[in-house]
């Protein structure tokens, strides 16, 4: 499971946790997150996220 970070505001999408508030179940891989999903904090799109190296 990977983590993705919004480069604008820093929010982290953790695949293992998903984003249940937006109906994205825990364990949802980044590529399966809907393409129109927006950063819950600052509203930018998926293109503005980057994989976080651990």
């Amino acid at each position: 499971m990977k983590k993705w970070q919004c480069v604008v505001c820093g929010l982290i999408y953790d695949e293992s946790k998903g984003w249940p508030e937006d109906g994205i179940a825990a364990g949802t891989a980044w590529e399966d997150v809907p393409s129109d999903w927006l950063c819950p904090d600052c509203g930018v799109g998926k293109e503005d996220f980057e994989m976080v190296e651990m």
């Binding site: 604008v8 927006l38 950063c39 600052c42 509203g43 930018v44 799109g45 293109e47 503005d48």
Partner: peptide
């Protein structure tokens, strides 16, 4: 209206 200001400069690309 709630909007994401950084998106204003990527309107055409997106």
């Amino acid at each position: 209206y709630s909007y994401s200001k950084p998106m204003l400069s990527t309107g055409f690309s997106k």
